[in-house]
Simulated assay, not measured.
Amino acid sequence: MLKHGLIYIFLLVLAGCAQVPDSQKDERDPLQNINRPIYDFNMDVLDTYILRPAAVGYITVTPVPVRQSLVHFTNNISAPVDMINAGLQGKPGNASVSLARFLVNSTVGVFGLFDVASSLGLEHVDEDFGQTLGVWGAGDGAYLMLPAMGPSTARNLTGDVVDNFVLPEIALTTPQTILVFALKAVEARASLIAQEGLLNDSLDPYLFIKDIYFQRQLYELYDGNPPIKEEPDDFDEDFLESL
């Protein structure tokens, strides 16, 4: 099955190697002729036959309180990574909050199943090494559509590698790591079911997802306060002064 899937990806990539029309070129996405076939494979094969059915089944059989507890649990596992990256970004306040959240939720919150810390005013702040690289001045790099994982960038892919290997979340065995990854993936897909209409109604779903991804990355990089770009002046100032 895996072999056939890899062959299918390879054929899709070959099919997508045609030149991208000038009207669709995006300097953020120099690999678009490869990314689009991978996106099609993700949506038409992996999502249609595996991820979405799993997410629907998960929603059907899992009560909302249990889902919330699982989200709290996976967030708590990530708290040490949030703390380390906040420190690397020069945010001692966020680092202290992440440490306090981990201590409170790991004890009073029963291994993170209950988010007691938020009720104490210690709100979750997501920090990763991709954001750390951005704070240090690294650009996004090329936009990437990864098989089974979805949108990313060269910078964020590097950050994910560091977070998952160099800065391990906590001492987990391989099966536990896979379980946590699966829980995050299924919950993330389940949370998007209500928004599927927006994607289906878009003129180009690939571009829609890419734009949303970059907006979210900018939002997270600036902790919810991205810089506001000034609109260019449509008029010539010298001409206006001559009136």
Rank of each mutant, 00 (worst) to 15 (best):
A190E: 05
F208Y: 12
Y206V: 08
S191M: 09
Q176A: 02
D204R: 06
A185Q: 14
L144R: 04
L199A: 13
I178M: 10
I178V: 12
A154H: 01
A182T: 15
A182S: 15
N200R: 15
L172W: 07
D163L: 08
V180A: 06
D201Y: 08
V161Q: 01
A185E: 13
T173C: 00
A188K: 15
Y206P: 03
K210Y: 01
L146F: 12
L179K: 03
A190L: 05
L179V: 11
G197W: 05
A154L: 10
V161Y: 09
D204H: 09
T158Y: 05
L192G: 03
D201S: 13
I170E: 15
I170R: 15
M145W: 04
D163T: 03
T158M: 11
P168N: 11
V186H: 08
G150M: 06
G159D: 00
T174D: 08
K184W: 06
P175S: 09
A194E: 14
T174V: 11
N164V: 05
A188E: 14
L144T: 00
I209D: 07
A185C: 12
E187H: 14
T173R: 00
M145T: 08
N164A: 13
N156R: 03
A154N: 00
L167D: 10
A142K: 03
L192P: 03
A194G: 07
D163P: 04
F165G: 07
I178L: 13
F165W: 14
L203Y: 05
P151A: 02
A148Y: 14
Q195E: 14
A148S: 13
S191Y: 06
E196I: 01
P147I: 04
P205A: 01
P147L: 05
A138H: 05
T174I: 10
G159Q: 05
F181D: 12
V166C: 13
D201F: 09
L167A: 13
V162F: 11
K210V: 08
E169M: 13
V166W: 12
P175F: 04
L207V: 10
A190R: 02
T153D: 00
A182W: 11
I170K: 15
V166Q: 08
Y206H: 05
A138K: 10
V161G: 03
L144D: 02
P168M: 09
K210C: 00
L179F: 10
D163V: 05
Y143Q: 03
A138C: 09
G141N: 05
A182I: 11
F165Q: 12
G197S: 06
L144E: 02
L167I: 15
D201I: 03
A142Y: 01
D204C: 07
A154F: 02
L198G: 08
V186C: 09
V166E: 08
V166G: 14
E187D: 15
P147D: 03
G159F: 01
L199R: 11
A190W: 04
P168Y: 06
T177K: 12
L192A: 12
T173Y: 00
R189S: 08
A182E: 10
L167N: 14
V166S: 11
